[in-house]
Design a protein around this nucleic acid. Structure first.
Length: 672
DNA sequence: CAGTGAGCGAGCTTCCGCTTGACTT
């Protein structure tokens, strides 16, 4: 009897069915050993070591203390028993950095030694599995070193910087390579919104009485362009060096009257082909984004639903960064498309998609229907589960369908001294959009008639409209998962957990499905930016990934790299960091955000007041600030009215606020 | 003398990434 150990139980069942008798396939459920946490009891030799809590002996080549994970005690016992009675043990954790590490930890726990048998495969088919077990290799210790470097760095950074926040901010705060970089991205967006000054401008549109009629916008007067949102800076000024006309209400009204008396002459018609490619098959971040946008589901809920679909064998593994489809999957998808839309809906060859993500590890396939591609209505699912399966199903099929093809028409018209523009798109071949449309349907483009240069039309219904430039929008959970992926922060298995941590710490809160940074979050981000800028820099992770690759290929030593980062950068910054409580000025309100004992407060002309739990920066206006200071403030809208759709991650722990005396009660450690 | 409350000081918090059930609310 041979024992094969994989990570996931679902995978184990599948592979067991391929290998059959003579093999026992078991799952280890991910990592089995880790650095100690405060709940772990250490081996006697480390009990009194000064680095026991940190779990890393920095002065001894950053040697980690590894302990068997408590939550895996039963799993480890089972695997040991199985290994004892096996003739050979094959370690088949996922083919990536973490998987190689898991294989090594297993080899230690099961006493398999340096020559333990390691196997990897890229897809789960009988042929691929048999091929893999026929050609085992040994563990790649450089790759294991790369993982250990990542783990050690994260512990050093997290346990090094978090205590600064305990002292400067108070309360159980936290910082880390991933959560703090994510908080910084959100905080920068919130700050640019806070400082944004909207600019008003007028736009004038008119209906052109052709057959059929269409709408055109005024773009210039006497050759000088009209101001648009893009003409203004974030501080509400016209961009320098820009020659534009800025209408006021009166001038806009004059223009409306002028246009209604004019005829327009077509002065230019530009036709250009439009080709839209289908979106790629789903990855974890793509699923989060699509389910959030189309089904209004929160990150935690998408994960939960997708996990149940995975466990029912309806879709493939849900934590992946690869859009790759196996040949078998492409065949099944093409078959399903042909059945539904006929063979003409398919391109000659199957489509394969490459990842755009530099940090992708590509240990798993894209998220797609598993097995025989059950039709959504045949799955027996209902509600959100059905909707999510349908999304996966349709995105997979769409990725194999033909491009949507059409033509874009752009028209310029002249009406006296006024220049007008109109454009329209006509799809001549619907392609994949017959099944899945990823364009926002609210931005539907109009259809223009065939027009000739020199044609003349009357105008009617001119309308002037005041518009305002708007600040960059906040992120939804789905959108932000994509931002994290693009920045290389976090992994498919942690995007959701990072969002939960930020909410649990009360740095970030969801309102109307948008991620807001809380006052506390602004203060923490501003403190970290000032004292430990290296940690909040999104580039930090990207560079780390490059260096980990060098360690994995043997070009860089683990100790040399950790010395550069820890002794050269992070440790000096932590050592020099000031422990003063952060402040955040709100100049428009003549107010300052401060923090005492982990609770954000507002100070106006020497008077301080603690902010209630659910007050967000967007709530802080002259009126609310006055109400807060006079004690007549009532909390903004209570919890979201549709709790089913919220992520479920929001901490509901009640804080007792200390009222208007919070500032007076300043503790000395927050000052010194 | 017992009960109360202000004031002080000690002890605590934390990271990221891989996987699911086994727990309680």
């Amino acid at each position: 009897m041979k024992l094969l150990i994989v990570e996931s139980p679902a995978k184990a069942r599948k592979i067991q069915s391929y290998l059959g008798a003579g093999w026992q396939v078991r799952a280890c459920l991910g990592h089995v050993r880790d650095l100690p946490t405060k709940d772990d009891t250490l081996p006697d030799k480390y009990k009194d070591a000064p680095f026991a809590k940190l779990g890393i002996d920095v002065d001894n080549n950053y040697a980690p203390i590894y302990v068997a994970r408590k939550d895996k005690a039963q799993t480890i016992r089972d695997l040991r028993d199985a290994a004892k009675s096996a003739d050979a043990v094959y370690l088949a954790a996922d083919p990536d950095r973490e998987g190689e590490s898991i294989a090594w930890h297993l080899s230690v726990l099961l006493g398999l030694g340096k020559d333990a048998l390691r196997v990897t495969y890229q897809e789960i088919t009988e042929r691929a599995i048999r091929q893999a077990v026929a050609h085992p290799r040994t563990i790649d210790f450089n790759l294991v070193a790369a993982q250990e470097t990542r783990r050690v760095l994260d512990r050093l950074a997290g346990y090094g910087v978090s205590p600064l926040l305990w002292k400067a901010v108070g309360g159980p705060q936290s910082a880390g390579r991933v959560q703090s970089a994510a908080l910084m991205l959100l905080s920068q967006r919130e700050q640019s919104r806070l400082s944004f000054v909207p600019s008003a401008f007028w736009r004038v549109g008119v209906t052109v009485k052709s057959q059929p009629a269409f709408k055109a916008q005024v773009t210039a007067i006497r050759g000088v362009a009209l101001a648009t949102a893009a003409s203004f800076t974030a501080s509400g000024q016209l961009k320098p060096g820009l020659n534009v006309t800025q209408l006021d209400q009166e001038k806009a009204a004059q223009l409306v009257e002028y246009l209604n008396r004019q005829q327009a002459v077509v002065s230019a018609v530009t036709l250009s082909p439009v080709v839209r490619r289908p979106p790629p098959p789903l990855t974890t971040s793509g699923l989060q984004q699509a389910a959030n946008a189309k089904l209004k589901l929160g990150a935690a809920q998408v994960t939960k639903l997708a996990q149940t679909l995975y466990e029912q064998g309806l879709i493939t593994y849900i934590r992946t960064d690869s859009p790759h489809l196996s040949d078998e999957a492409i065949g099944l998808a093409r078959e399903a498309v042909a059945t539904r839309f006929g063979p003409s809906a398919l391109p000659k060859e199957g489509r394969q998609y490459a990842t755009k993500n530099q940090n992708a590890q590509e240990a798993h396939e894209a998220i797609r229907p598993a097995g025989k591609f059950a039709l959504p209505e045949q799955t027996g699912l209902s509600g959100d589960e059905l909707a999510l399966y349908r999304l996966v199903y349709e995105r997979t099929l769409a990725s194999q369908m033909r491009d949507a093809v059409g033509e874009k028409t752009a028209v310029t018209l002249t009406a006296g001294v006024v220049t007008l523009h109109a454009s329209g798109v006509v799809l001549t071949e619907k392609g994949f959009t017959a099944l899945y449309d990823d364009q926002d349907s609210s931005e539907e483009e109009q259809t223009l008639p065939k027009l000739q240069v020199g044609e003349r039309f009357a105008l009617k219904d001119a309308k002037a409209e005041e518009k305002k430039s708007s600040a960059p929008g906040r992120f939804t959970e789905g959108k932000f998962v994509q931002v994290m992926e693009k920045a290389g922060i976090g992994r498919p298995s942690t995007y959701g957990a990072t969002l939960e941590t930020l909410q649990k710490r009360n740095y970030v809160a969801l309102r109307n499905r948008q991620l807001h940074v809380t006052p506390l979050g602004l203060l923490v981000a501003s403190y970290l930016m000032k004292q430990v800028p290296q940690l909040v820099n999104a580039e930090f992770t990207a560079q780390m990934e490059g260096d980990l690759d060098k360690i994995a290929s043997g070009q860089l030593s683990r100790v040399a790299y950790l010395d550069t980062i820890w002794k050269g950068t992070l440790h000096p910054a932590i050592h020099a960091a000031k422990l003063t409580a952060p402040r955040y000025a709100l100049p428009q309100l003549n107010a300052v955000l401060e923090v005492r004992g982990g609770i954000a407060g507002l100070v106006v002309s020497g008077q301080g007041v603690a902010l209630p739990d659910n007050v967000l920066p967007e709530d802080l206006t002259a009126q609310t600030v006055a109400a807060l200071m006079s004690g007549t403030f009532t909390s903004p809208k209570a919890k979201s009215p549709t709790p089913k759709r919220t992520s479920g991650a929001v901490s509901s722990k009640k804080r007792t606020t200390t009222g208007p005396t919070a500032t007076k009660k300043s503790s000395k450690r927050a000052v010194k």
